[in-house]
Design a binder for these strands. Sequence first.
DNA 1: AAGCCTTCTTAACATAGGTCAATGCACGAT
DNA 2: ATCGTGCATTGACCTATGTTAAGAAGGCTT
Lengths: 197, 197
Amino acid sequence: MQEYRFSEFLTSNIEVDEKVLSQFLSQNQRKTFNKGDFLVFAGDLCESIFFVEKGLLRQYSIDEKGKEHVLQFAPEGWLVNDRESLYYNKPSKYNIEALENTEVFILDKKIIEKLEEELPEFATFNNELLNNHIRHLQNRINLLLSATAEERYLTFIKMYPDILLRVPQWMVASYLGIAPESLSRVRKELATRNFKK
Amino acid sequence: MQEYRFSEFLTSNIEVDEKVLSQFLSQNQRKTFNKGDFLVFAGDLCESIFFVEKGLLRQYSIDEKGKEHVLQFAPEGWLVNDRESLYYNKPSKYNIEALENTEVFILDKKIIEKLEEELPEFATFNNELLNNHIRHLQNRINLLLSATAEERYLTFIKMYPDILLRVPQWMVASYLGIAPESLSRVRKELATRNFKK
DNA sequence: AAGCCTTCTTAACATAGGTCAATGCACGAT
DNA sequence: ATCGTGCATTGACCTATGTTAAGAAGGCTT
């Protein structure tokens, strides 16, 4: 579980003077959460953007029947926020919870906008990040539309082998949109099939 | 079926001088497609961004079993492109097809970047667009994870009543991730239920 | 007007995956 | 060491949705 500072995230992706950068990023934007803590509760307003420097977050909703649905996991180097709150001042539909002791760097919309104005390179980079995020979401939608439980699981293993080891299995099931018992069954089936070969 | 020019899209969302704008946007970026035409075939490289000025597009994949899955519909005022191609120079997984006679305004990455550099307001606006798109995709994922066929359909009706009338029902089913026959069943069920009340 | 697509519907049947309940296991707290 | 809690597994059963196949209603095309 490495650590990944936000400043490092920036300097390793865009050309920018360390000093210029430091004027944007103050130490007090860093915050620590313990395993089990909530960064955001559904119903809250959430106008911050969280960059995970260390640890692991999950963003999830709870439906009327009380079931949880994982929208995303966020390990080191990932950004999480609630767009509904950030751009429409609406209460969030999603909880954000720390699955491990987690350090986040907290950004607000104004800082992002300021960075974009002052550093055109950042604007381009941020754009790519957003587009990349969209790409991921689209691929996930495509998977949810077309793939069986087994296919979804296999894709997950390939894409996020690290996360697989850091979260309980039922959360993976929740991310995949299947029941935990079903995932158990899929795994059993895969195991016996591999054994036979 | 109204018409929505890209220039109008910009001027109605950001403060910008018409003349400044016109230097970016030339007439030859406009293109017309007939119903049934393909703008992009899966496997193609697609480095353009399409803004729909008139008409209707759909972006969809075809899985190994030959089934189509609609990633999105794009009526007037919507942007479509393939991020996989645009940012990673990879062949597209998705087809883009004109469902009606359609006029699109074609942008490439460079124009977007230039607009962002020259017009900070555009950068902010574009950012909001991308974030809004992410928000939509997240909500759709959440729906796919948690909702039954009926709930998905009801949500679709509320969100896209216009599109409902412009595309065949089986495409809606494909967008919702259910079989056309299932959608038929859902509709019947809804009809009899409303009748009983 | 006839014939041909395409779409939608319906019904019978099949199945992946959900639900419920019981068991066992691992691990942290006492 | 023991208890309790949360997680994973398993099996029996159930249900929503997929599949297959057929027929009916429009709407193009010739």
